[in-house]
Amino acid sequence: MPELDTAIEAARKAGELIRAKADVAKRVDIKSSAHDLVTEVDKKSEALVREVILSHHPDHAILGEEGVAAGVEASKRALAEYREQESLWVVDPIDGTTNFVHGFPFFCVSIAFAQRQEVTVGVIYDPIRDDLFTAEKGKGAYLNGERITVSEERTLSESLLATGFPTDARGVRQVNTAAILKLAPQVRNVRAAGSAALHLACIAAGRLTGFWELELNAWDLAAGALLIEEAGGQVTDTVGRPYDLGVRHILATNGHVHHDVLRLLEEVGSTGFE
């Protein structure tokens, strides 16, 4: 599929830039809050990804994080404007910018392609580990060319879950923390490494059992959601509805523990829905 080749080319080129700047990129701007950062490398990475995509597909639309104003409402408006495009690329040039700024090596490039609102290509590239995760709709998920599948854990007690801390200051962090307190005693452990896209890729590769987080965006989730589905896992919103580009409150698992996590999120009121 030509879109897969384009996504791989763009992700690798952006990854080269990110890797070269990883030890020196400390100049940051504040976006919606002190927890929501953007660097010049984010902007240059997105510009590079756009250049590669448009060189191969000049008539395609691109929804990139750095082209959207800060804040939840701006993100929702941007998606509403773009999502009905016939051919749409959804790009996060660095997912895990705070990690990048601090030199914590857990960040990635995330690129998805959607045809008539259905995600058909997903690529996540970890430039530090040189791990390239790829998926095409109906063709499976791969890590560096090798087929991957989700993990086999069937109970919460043997599960390794991950979550994140939303960047906004509207109380969503506290809501998500309640879920951590509810789930942590019932699972093997919980991780929060700071990149939603890379957490999702880890589920597809069997490294994590599941991930949930509130108030994310299409560019955080689109590529990783396809990877998990193609690796045999399950992706919904936090009340169990099927994933689509508009989902902001996400639950992704190997499928075996999905219902149990949904039930506990509901019990503690941590779905993100009123």
Rank of each mutant, 00 (worst) to 15 (best):
Y142N: 02
I128A: 01
F165P: 01
A162P: 06
E152M: 13
R147C: 12
Y142E: 07
A135T: 00
A141M: 08
S159T: 04
A141G: 08
D131G: 10
T167C: 05
A135F: 01
R147S: 15
E153V: 10
R129K: 14
G138I: 08
E152W: 13
E152H: 14
S157M: 10
G138H: 08
D131V: 09
A135R: 00
T163R: 01
S157C: 10
T155R: 14
L156I: 13
K137S: 07
Y142H: 11
T149I: 15
T167V: 12
L143R: 12
N144A: 09
E136N: 01
R154V: 09
L161E: 02
K137H: 09
A135C: 03
V150D: 12
E136L: 11
R129T: 11
T163Y: 04
T155S: 15
K137A: 04
I128N: 05
G164I: 02
P166K: 00
T155F: 14
L143I: 06
A162W: 05
L161W: 06
I128T: 05
E158V: 07
K137T: 06
E158Y: 10
R154D: 14
D168P: 01
E146T: 15
E153A: 11
P166N: 01
D130P: 01
T167N: 08
G145I: 13
T163L: 04
D168S: 04
T155Y: 12
G140T: 09
T134P: 06
K137N: 06
I128K: 07
L156N: 11
E146H: 15
E158C: 04
E146P: 13
G138K: 04
I128R: 08
S151R: 07
K139C: 02
R154G: 15
I128M: 14
E153W: 07
S151D: 15
D168Q: 00
S159I: 04
R154L: 09
K139N: 10
R147W: 12
D130V: 10
F165L: 06
K137I: 05
F165K: 05
T134F: 04
F133L: 03
G138Y: 08
E153F: 10
T155H: 12
T149Q: 15
L161Y: 05
R147D: 11
F165Y: 07
S151H: 10
F133H: 06
R147Y: 12
L160A: 13
E136T: 09
L132E: 07
L161D: 01
E153M: 08
L160P: 08
F165E: 04
G140P: 08
R147I: 14
E158T: 12
F133P: 02
E158L: 09
T163E: 03
T134I: 02
L156P: 11
A162Y: 06
I128G: 04
A162G: 10
I148M: 14
K137P: 03
E146M: 15
T149C: 11
G138R: 03
L132D: 08
P166Q: 07
R147T: 15
F133G: 00
D130I: 06
E146I: 15
L143A: 04
A141Y: 01
